[in-house]
Structures are given as structure tokens and as C-alpha cells.
Design a protein around this nucleic acid. Sequence first.
RNA 1: GCGGAAGUGGCGGAACUGGCAGACGCGCCGGAUUUAGGAUCCGGUGGGGCGACCCGUGGGGGUUCGAGUCCCCCCUUUCGCACCA
Length: 828
Amino acid sequence: MKRPPFHPRVEQKWQERWEREDAFRTPDLPDGPRYYCLEMLPYPSGRIHMGHVRNYSIGDVVARFHRRRGYSVMHPIGWDALGLPAENAALAHGVHPAEWTKDNIAHMQRQLRRLGLSYDWDREFATCDPSYYRWNQWFFLRMRERGLVYRANRAVNWCPGCETVLANEQVEAGRCWRCESEVVSRELPQWFFRITEYADELLDAMEGMTGWPRKVLLLQRNWIGKSEGAEVRFRIPSLGDDGEIPVFTTRVDTIYGATALVLAPGHPAAARMAEGNDEVREYIARALAVTAAPPGAPAEKTGVRTGVPAVNPFTGEEIPVFVADYVLMDYGSGAVMCVPAHDERDHEFAVRYDIPIRRVVIPNDREAAPKGGAFTDYGTVVDSGDFSGLPTEEAKEAMARHAAESDFGGPRTEWRFHDWGVSRQRYWGTPIPMVHCDSCGVVPVPDADLPVELPRDVEITGKGGAALEKCEAWIRVDCPACGASARRETDTMDTFVDSSWYFYRYLDPTNAEAPFDPERARAWFPIDLYIGGVEHAILHLIYCRFWTRVMRDLGLCDHDEPVIRQLSQGMVIKDGAKMSKSKGNVVDPDAAVEEHGADAIRLYVLFEAPPEKEMDWTDARLAGPARFLKRLERVIPGEAPWLPETGLPAGDDAFTAGDVALRRKTHQTIRRVSRDLGERIHPNTAIAAVMELWNAALARLPQAGSGPARRAVREAVETVVSLLNPMAPHLTEELWERLGHQTPLLDSPWPECDEELAREESVLIVAQVNGKLRGRIEAPRGLGRDELIALGRANRGVARHLEGLEVFRVVTVPDRLVNFVARKPRDG
RNA sequence: GCGGAAGUGGCGGAACUGGCAGACGCGCCGGAUUUAGGAUCCGGUGGGGCGACCCGUGGGGGUUCGAGUCCCCCCUUUCGCACCA
């Protein structure tokens, strides 16, 4: 039989009160010191999962803590409401994406409220509101004016069966998720944001981002992938004017060892060489047909010899040209010089295709080991004309300079990341505010006509082209420039656009004149803490850094970085695996809250592991935090009925040593919890500290007969309730009330640590002999070295171990340790 | 393959700048109360030894009076990237 939990009444009572009193409303401009606490906004998938519970519990602790410390706290929530799943739901259940999304939001909103999260719900919005996405369109137009938007061809996944573009998620092992046709690649004109314009800035600024996890910064650094090297243009004489082939290399110092030129299968020059060469043509066709390389070890390199020579501009030497699949078209220039002696990949390829291996760098020390047959370390350049004898570093510089002076190359920087392709051939996204006119070309929609709203009456079939392309009435529009009949752009924006600036909109969610009031942004930004999963370490967290810089350049804000401190919280797993429906290991938050109460669930997810670590949900372990709460509820004041009438310690109280010890513990706990929730953001150790104080207070309970003793206990109990409040907000409010308080905890200041009371009067001195623990000595604070040594010698354990030894050195650490370094005396 | 992170009791995890290893909780053992417990309370709980003590933070070396913490090598797990020239 299940005994009724205490929580439903209590939690409901306080949630209703918070709602009635609009307790979490935040002023538009901070009133005093500000703290912007943000959690990544959820996608309204239908129900919240434990990952949400954890993320939002952590954020709520930080928000409530700062609020009670006297900060104006901005703690908003919204919905990342555009995206593919809504369209999939439309396909599966015939419900309109807007309806599906709206219903999901309503449900998930109830779930979040049930957790007692301190959000300012007045600031809530969904990114599918036209009043929000109109500003996506506005930004698009502003960026276009600044040359940050352009249109270019890019390959998309095309399903010949459904005759439609597929998102990457809709391609399963190279086949369409719905009809299983083989997906092919198709080139379409698409819209791009010129994020590479900010590449250097995004990279350099990371130096100063000390509040971000190293891991996230590293992921971003790798993703941006800056690579400094040189470009050298080789010539293929047989191609005439088109025969100039730029090559990017980070090791131009090895160019005298280049024994081939290798082109990517997609390289235009490769296509030229296929003309009249069947072997080359067939190879290219085959190589291009391979859709996506499966993950795992790189496939074996294949290639084809074109039979045509290229000229190495450094040596004037003719070298063979190959087309090979290990050269990528979308990095560098799609062509590489092949230096088998000093590059592993080139070496592997050269061995297979009989390309000569010519060594032009020798190691500086004999030990240096070749990798995969190639010597890839730095060394000294040899057999390289005038450059021979130079160390790698100098040779690189000298040779790049030479290439520039001779007009066949020069220094060059390459980036691994590319401009941000924002076009999506989908319905449920922000329409791109452009119009195609036969006579004017591509024309922007005037600001006055924003937002370009998505048409409601649309049929989502997943077949026969994008849904918007079939909305003829919506597409037809007068050209804003010449008035002639024209057609709207039917691409919508990547949903990462929506999440790149939503946290600015929270400040001013109803503004119809601008995305937000810059004055508010100045007052609230940068965000003090941004919590979310590591899975967003690169795309989202770089896009929003980019977007902030664009806004800065538009004069909308005056900071470079949107986020001061970022916390990547760990995943919630179960039985060692990520929770998922297919594995059947999902724990439903509603059921858990129903059974144990929101406070217990919150306390459990916070206590189980530090926030940045993954946590394994174990039902059995929930018992600890739940038990702790029940005990609080039972004891206060049931087992100490005098508590409500008892005051706090007064100046003239005559405390016993036990009282003083409890008070010391109380104030030490305040200090520790404040640090754990503030600087460290480790609610797990904060909770442990509160439990310790509670245990100490309980132990004092039987002895609390006198006034002073009761006042010391009251102080401890009250502190437990107060410090636990950010983690378990409902029960602590209830207990606070039971203790006789009129003002809710929410509006009561965070307790202050009285350093005087917290200070230990006596300290534990560790006594060691040769570094081994031999005794523990309780001693007054502040003893000098000689006193420590005397105390140490007097200790029984120390004395025993010093017997027959000669002390030749004593190490002392004030208030901490005395260590006798001793050895056997020498004979004679 | 490259790069990162992490290895602490039966379990989750504590341990600020090198200075009492294992806080707090789960579990387990013993006891109390109870007709009963998935309730509550008390005590115990790293391993070994009757004991004084000895051994213990993945393994091996090192620095130090002293190492979970710093340095080197190795092993394992895990997460990124995956032919980026």
C-alpha cells in the first residue's frame, strides 16, 4: 500500500500562490545588480523528458539563489517551435504543424509549471509566432544589405521517389526514410550567411572566454579549423587557360618532394580531363556516386592516372596528374600536391599507384619515427634548391614569400568551416523574405511588408516538392521593385536562426518596432549563465556568438560575446544508456512527480551528480533525498513543537560548548552552500552540506531544553530550510511558514555567514612521522612552530614511532600539521 | 588514426591552493518499535589482523618531509573529429 505523500497539497498551494502573486515577474530594466540566468529553450516535442528536468532544475537553483541574494534575476523560457518534427506529425496524423505545436506547448508548459520553476511566464514566446520570426526576416534583410547574405548553388538530398528534398535526418543509410528510394544529390541555389567573415574574431575571442568549459571551446576551435599555409598554383599545360590549378598546403616546405598533382573527383579540371578519356570519366562517375562515406576507418584510397602532366612552379618539373577520392572538393581548392615522403595519405596513395617517393626533409634528431612510411615531423629541408638547409619553419616562410614574388601563389589561410547555409526546402520554418521577379531578379521584401507569414492552408504530403511550392496563391506576389507579377522565395530558414538570438527577445517580447530595445540589452547582457547540453557546443553556440556580433555591427548591442559563463550539463541516462523509447528505459517526469513530488525529483537530480557530469537515473537512489524531505516535514515542528515560538540567538545568551559548536556549523554551512551555489554551481555538494547541518541539529534536539540551546537549534533548523529553498522551493516555503514567518522565503534575504561565529577556535593538528599519520591533536588556533613541535613530541603515537630514531628535520604547517622527519642514527 | 575528458568502497559521489582519503546519500549488517512494512528510530559499514599495526585513490616509475592531487610511461573507459592536405 502506498502511503500518501505530503507534497500534493503543499506544492499546489505554493504554485498557486506564486501564480496569483505573479511572483517571478522581472522588471524590464534591472532594479539593482542584475543576473541573467538562461537555459536552452526546449523544442515542443510533446512531453518533457528527464534531461529537461535536470537542465531546468539546475537553472532554477541558480536563479532562485541569486534572487534571494538581492539580484534582479532574468529567468525566462520559450519554445523553439519551428522544425521538422511538426511536419512529420502532420504527415503521420494529418494534424497541422501549428496545431500540433500549440498543443505540445500547452502540455509541456503545464509540466514545467508543475516542477515549480521560477520563470517569468510573461516573457514566454514561441519562435513560430509571426511576431517573432518577422525579426528573423528583418535580420536577414539587414544582413543582406551588409553583404552578409548571398545565394549560391549547393547540393541537397533529393528523393526521386517522393520528388522532394530531404533533410539529413530523413536519409537513412542513403535511402529515403519514407519510400526507401536511393537518395541522390542535386544542386539548388540556396541562401548563405557569411559567417566566415567573422571567423578570425570568433576564434580569437575564445582566449577571453574563461567562463566557458574548455571542452566546448576546443570543439569550437576544431570546428572552425583555422589552418595557415600557402597556396601554390600548378599548371596543367594541356588545359590551356584553365590549366592553372591552385593547391593549398600547410607544408609548402616539402614542395620539392611533390611527385604528383591530385584532383578531387568533383574538380572542374578533372571533368575537363575526362573528355576523351573513358577511364578517367568512368572513375569520376563512380567516385561521385558514392553518397556519404560511412563512419569508421577511412576507406582505401582509389584514384586514376590522367596521363596528363602538370608543372611544379618551384622546380619547373613535370609531374603526373591524378584524380583520387581522398582529395575533398570542399576543402582548400579541391586539389593537392602529393608528397609521399612527408604525408601519410600521399604515401599510401603513392605506394599503390607507383608514384616516386622523394625525401626532402630530414629529421633533426635520429629518433624521429616515420608515420605510415612518411616523415611528417619538422626537420631540415634538403635537395630543395636554394632552400636546402633551412629548418622547416623558415623554409615555409621563405617558400611562401618566393611564391608570392614569382606570382604563382603566396601565404594563405584555410578554414574548415564554411558559410552557414540557411535555406531549407521545408514548410515549418521562417519564410525567406525575398521575391523573384523576371525583370528585376531577386528582390527583398520591403520592411513594411514584414512579416512574410506562412500560409495556413497548406497540404503536407512529403511528396512532389516542398509544401510551400504548392501554395500558388501565397507564392504569387507583385514585385516590390517594378510591380510586375513575381514569385516568392519558397525556401525557409534553418531553425538554428531562430535560436541564435531568442534570448534577446525575452527582454522585449512584444516589441513591434524592433527586435528589442537596445537599452534593455545593454542593461541585461551578457547572459551571466547559459545552461544546456554539450550537443549544442558547436552549431548553436557558435551561431549565437556570430549573431551577437552581427547585431553589434548593426548597433543593437555593444558587447561582443552574448554569454559570460556556459554550463554544459551532462546527459540523464538509465542503466548505462541514453533514455529512449526504443530501449524502453524512459522515466516519465509526470509519473515521478506524481509519486514523489516535484521537490523530491528536483533534489534527487541535483544531488545525484555534479551538473556537468552525466547522471544515471536509479529509482532506488531517489529514496535518500525523498526521505530527507519527509524527515524535515515531520520534525518541523512536530517533534520540536517549541520551534515556532523560539527566537534566534540573542547577544546575551549563555551558550554551552555544544551550542557554540552547532552555531559554528550553521555559519560554516552558510558559507559553504553560498559558494557551492554561487561560484561553483555544484548543488550536489550544497545539498550534502545542508544534510550535514540537519544531522547536527537533529542530534542537538534532545538536549535543547534551555532557552539558549533552543535558540541555537532554531537558528540551525531555520538555516537548513532557508539554504535548501533554491533546490526544494515548495516544502521549504511551507516549513518557513510553519516556523512562524510572514514573509515567504522567496522574498527573504539569503542568510549571511557570520565569520566570527564560523571560525574554528581549536584546530586539528595532524602529527606525522616521516609523512605517516601517527597522531591527531586538538589544539588552539594560531600556535607557533615551537609549540607545534612540543605538542607533537608529546603525542603518544608520535613518541612511539620516534623511538630509536634521530629527528633531523621538522616540517610544520600552521594550524594544520607537524611532521617529524627522522632516521636511524648512524653507528659510531 | 588524431584530439579531449575520466579511472577513488558493493554503488552515486566528497576531498578549496599537495597536508586526517572515502563528506553526503544509496545499499548492506545488527538492534529497537511494530500484527505487518517499500514506515520510523539507534548503532555499524574500504580491505587485512585478536592486537599494537599493516595495506589501500587503474598499473609502473619519479618529484617531495608528505601525492587521489604535480611530472613521465603504460592500461582501460568514454566523448568529439574522421582522408581538412
